[in-house]
Simulated scan of single mutants.
Amino acid sequence: MSSESADTPRVQIIQIPAEFAGQRVDNFLFTRLKGVPKSRVYRMLRSGEVRINGGRVRAESRLQDGDMLRVPPVRVAERAEVALPTALLQQRLDDRIVFEDDAMLVLNKPSGMPVHGGSGVSFGVIEALRHLRPEARFLELVHRLDRDTSGLLLVAKKRSALRVLHELFRDDRVEKRYLALLAGAWGQKKLLVDAPLEKNVAQGGERMVRVSRQGKPAQTYFHRQELFADATLVEAKPVTGRTHQIRVHAAHLGHPIIGDERYGQEETNKAFRRRGLKRLFLHAAKLVIAHPVSGVELRLHAPLEPELDAFLQQLRR
């Protein structure tokens, strides 16, 4: 008789249904293996434990209808106690929905809230929305915003809509515009920063991105909006969608975003905190995208957060 218990993890062979065709392998595994650390999932992919149709696969590979996916034995951590968003927070998120229909939802995300739980955070925007919309059978993030960035965030309400929206983002057919306050007086009015970006890990284990010839192509348009004595308000329009792209490109200009604790200037951030700016001054203000079902162009707008607007008024005075 086998000594294995009934709940001993075993190899899974999953035949991919048509509705998941086009999804990245790592994102599919995150959904399938809830509770398993992302680092473990990526380790499984790098070591070849995950296979498609018998062959090794990369994290960014896309699933195809009918693929046979091998998932190695892995124990999914039980989450006995999961903190739930408060009614006040749920109401706050509900009030910040700027567009919603049967296919998608667009939220004006508050600063300080991650888009999803993990890394010591019990829940993020997507978990809170699922709790807010218990009747919704499907809610998935289309893209991400950094925890301290506020502004427009897309959530798909159908698998078919997610597939179309991912394709639009992948093909750079989404126009995004951010408002950012840069440190120092930037002397130029317009500039295209064309600097490839490479992900790496700092000595402390913190994920960092840097400009590098070995990196992936990355382009950001910067357009000056207002010039102050020691700061510059700009509109940033990313052409590509790399991690931390606007923040790293701003620092590359020599004018990092004020409040950026990872790529910014510590003394500058401290000085502006004393003047009342307590957060990263980066806001996803505008979004132009084709509706995933109708194809009609949507032009969405999220006004500048009250605390950021108040700080600009202070600078103007």
Rank of each mutant, 00 (worst) to 15 (best):
L88R: 15
F99W: 07
F30D: 06
L45F: 04
E167R: 14
V11P: 04
K109S: 00
R242C: 01
G48H: 15
R224Y: 02
V115T: 13
F123A: 05
A218D: 04
K216D: 07
M68T: 05
N53V: 11
E140N: 12
A284E: 03
R273A: 14
G120C: 03
I246Q: 11
L132N: 05
A310S: 13
V76A: 15
A21I: 04
V36C: 03
I126G: 04
E175P: 00
Y42C: 02
E49T: 11
R213E: 08
G118F: 03
V288Y: 08
L165E: 03
V115W: 09
L233K: 08
S150C: 06
H131W: 08
L227F: 05
E4W: 06
V125E: 04
R316F: 07
A136T: 05
L84E: 13
K38W: 01
V201W: 07
M44P: 03
Q12P: 02
A290F: 02
A271S: 13
G48E: 09
E226N: 12
E206P: 01
G276V: 01
P217W: 08
Q265N: 13
V125K: 07
D230G: 04
R163N: 07
F28Q: 13
N200H: 15
Q90R: 15
I14F: 06
H223Q: 14
V211E: 11
E135Q: 14
V71K: 02
T31K: 15
E4S: 13
V288L: 13
E235N: 07
V50S: 07
K34D: 10
A310M: 09
S119K: 10
R56M: 05
G55E: 01
L29E: 00
H166Q: 01
A103T: 11
T220N: 00
S122F: 05
R262E: 06
I258V: 14
D146Y: 07
S47L: 15
